[in-house]
Amino acid sequence: MSPEAKRLKVSGIVALVVGCACVVSGIVLAVLGVDITDLFVVAASVVALLVGARGARVANVPSHAPRLMGPSAGATLATGALCAGDVAFANGQVAPIVVGAVAFVVALLVTIATSAVKRSVEKV
């Protein structure tokens, strides 16, 4: 396994674990006080979780990385948009913004690692 594929595997697993933790914290935030930002947090976390799962699977077969690049970039943009929604509707709440930002960062890490694997595959 190439170093780029290893980074994709690790970032995918990290995104998977952190995405699960963010989903749980989003649900806890929703239970404590239902707000639109809590739904944004849960949606962004689910997207980050799915990107992490796909990234960890694609790392096993690096030649599939070009097919993951589009969905991964789209999921990162969607997570960023949901985080922007958190910021816009937070009304002074910090927790939804932090959890949403964490979900965005892990989705971005998977996208960057996917890009590196795609470049290494296309170079060969």
Rank of each mutant, 00 (worst) to 15 (best):
residue 80 G to L: 13
residue 10 V to M: 12
residue 47 V to T: 10
residue 2 S to L: 04
residue 37 T to D: 01
residue 49 L to D: 03
residue 52 G to F: 06
residue 27 I to T: 08
residue 87 V to N: 14
residue 71 P to V: 06
residue 75 A to V: 05
residue 5 A to F: 08
residue 36 I to N: 01
residue 12 G to T: 01
residue 119 R to H: 12
residue 98 V to M: 12
residue 63 S to A: 13
residue 114 T to S: 08
residue 46 V to L: 13
residue 28 V to T: 07
residue 21 A to S: 10
residue 41 V to G: 08
residue 77 L to C: 08
residue 37 T to C: 00
residue 106 V to P: 12
residue 55 G to E: 04
residue 63 S to T: 14
residue 67 R to L: 14
residue 21 A to V: 07
residue 96 P to W: 05
residue 106 V to A: 11
residue 11 S to E: 11
residue 5 A to R: 10
residue 43 A to F: 04
residue 116 A to H: 05
residue 118 K to G: 04
residue 37 T to E: 06
residue 40 F to Y: 08
residue 33 G to I: 01
residue 115 S to I: 01
residue 101 A to C: 12
residue 77 L to N: 13
residue 88 A to C: 05
residue 124 V to G: 12
residue 71 P to K: 01
residue 4 E to I: 00
residue 51 V to F: 03
residue 21 A to F: 11
residue 34 V to G: 07
residue 114 T to G: 11
residue 44 A to E: 09
residue 118 K to E: 11
residue 65 A to S: 14
residue 69 M to A: 15
residue 72 S to H: 05
residue 4 E to K: 05
residue 3 P to V: 00
residue 33 G to P: 00
residue 11 S to Q: 14
residue 33 G to M: 00
residue 56 A to W: 05
residue 59 A to F: 12
residue 34 V to F: 10
residue 47 V to D: 09
residue 103 A to D: 12
residue 39 L to A: 06
residue 80 G to S: 11
residue 15 A to R: 06
residue 100 G to K: 03
residue 62 P to I: 02
residue 39 L to M: 05
residue 18 V to Y: 12
residue 99 V to G: 06
residue 84 A to E: 12
residue 54 R to N: 13
residue 101 A to I: 04
residue 115 S to D: 13
residue 7 R to H: 02
residue 49 L to S: 11
residue 104 F to A: 14
residue 29 L to A: 04
residue 6 K to G: 01
residue 37 T to G: 02
residue 72 S to M: 15
residue 20 C to A: 11
residue 41 V to W: 10
residue 81 A to N: 03
residue 18 V to A: 15
residue 123 K to G: 03
residue 49 L to A: 09
residue 4 E to V: 00
residue 43 A to T: 11
residue 111 T to G: 14
residue 32 L to C: 03
residue 61 V to R: 11
residue 93 Q to W: 09
residue 46 V to H: 07
residue 67 R to P: 02
residue 64 H to A: 15
residue 82 L to P: 08
residue 52 G to S: 09
residue 86 D to K: 00
residue 52 G to I: 11
residue 25 S to I: 01
residue 40 F to W: 07
residue 84 A to I: 09
